[in-house]
Design a protein around this nucleic acid. Structure first.
Lengths: 215, 215
DNA sequence: CGCACCTTTGATGCTAATCAATAAGGGTGG
DNA sequence: CCACCCTTATTGATTAGCATCAAAGGTGCG
């Protein structure tokens, strides 16, 4: 929770990119870098080109809820308010494109792309609200793993977690201990194997699917 | 959970509205009417002109999570998929505008409005995820009431609930009993008074605010 | 090698869910 | 208008699941 949180976004190239009407900068960022904090003035928005990030919000007493996980192609920092309403933190080495908010408002086909993107995220967030509001700890873990495994339906899948147990807990609305216990439980049952703390082999994908609470 | 669910959307006028490029129909609907079910073919999307609605999703075993509450001006049924991903139910007598999905895709300024709308909802959904993932039962109830009270900061506020206890529970990720107990608790403490089951007088707005867990 | 951080495991407690019964509304028809 | 019924809400007793508190075990890095 208490990262050094040094803002250390290194430009990939100094000059503006002319390829896109309102791209102003391309950046590289490492794990634990903060792109913006909740409350920062919201002058730009971003696209994650490559890597992984998370968006989270904090309650005054320090409780954290990760509200979105982002992968390549995802936008973030989109807000109509003057300030960002969440904090954006890098989970693993990433490339990020920054856009000027004011310059992009009018760009036509960009609007189109944007709303399509937002509609998609909308649905994903509905799914996550079901998880947070109605699923048991094990169902949350299984849903999380199934999501990371992507389209793999059956058999094995290998997953790289770029999140700590604490981050997973804050994403799933659980505690670190419950996350750990759930993993251990799955391991004992032979459903998964942990090749490393952050490298999970799903031995039985259909077992995971069956545990999600969906379908 | 098991409503008669008769789809009974009565057109307000038979012919198309020409005022808007892609509005195809204006409808009236009553409490418990279903505008669309999860899984229905998604040919249209909608705008709630007046009234109140909810969007919810069901898990196969019947657990329900209300993912959005809608008021006048809100859009719903926006999806890129072929099917709606949630069910839309009317909470109180409402007027609804229906739009043809395909016809609207290109309409320029509509895109703009749409993405602005979506960005706003995005933020609201983040807030609700914090509630579902990290807040106690009492904090959820207080946040819910504070939200309904709108901009009233201090003193009294009068709130009309157009939701049953079960619906409130499904929105807040709680059970009906916990919702009821929380209300009773607030009543005993003199923070609220129930003028009717669905009519709440918030006697002490600052007490509610203090209980939300925010700020 | 040793330190710092993260994870796992264990013991206990608490919150909210579940199970169960009573009470209160709200409509309807006599 | 009132009695009755059905739905919804409240309250109580108990339980279950997850959080919390505490300590030991891993892992990676300087």
């Amino acid at each position: 929770m208490s990262h050094a949180a040094i803002i250390d976004l290194r430009p990939m190239r100094a000059q503006r990119a002319v390829s896109d009407s309102c791209e102003i900068q391309s950046l590289r960022a490492d794990q634990h870098d903060i792109v913006f904090y909740e409350g920062d003035a919201a002058g730009r928005y971003f696209k994650l080109i490559d890597g992984a990030m998370m968006l989270f919000r904090l309650l005054p007493d320090g409780r954290r809820q990760i509200v979105e996980l982002l992968g390549p192609g995802d936008y973030f920092g989109l807000t109509l308010a003057d300030e960002y309403q969440c904090t954006a933190e890098v989970l693993r080495p990433s490339r990020i494109a920054a856009y000027d908010r004011s310059a992009c408002g009018e760009a036509g086909h960009f609007q189109q792309m944007l709303s399509e993107y937002l509609v998609g995220r909308h649905a994903a967030m509905h799914g996550h609200m079901v998880l947070l509001g109605r699923k048991s700890a094990m169902e949350r873990i299984a849903t999380f793993l199934a999501g990371l495994a992507g389209n793999v339906e059956e058999g094995e899948a290998r997953i790289r977690l770029s999140m700590t147990r604490q981050e997973i807990a804050d994403y799933l609305g659980l505690t670190i201990e419950t996350v750990s216990r759930s993993f251990s439980d799955l391991r004992r049952r032979g459903v998964i194997a942990m090749e490393r703390q952050d490298l999970i082999l799903i031995a039985d994908m259909s077992a995971i699917t069956a545990l999600t609470g969906d379908e």
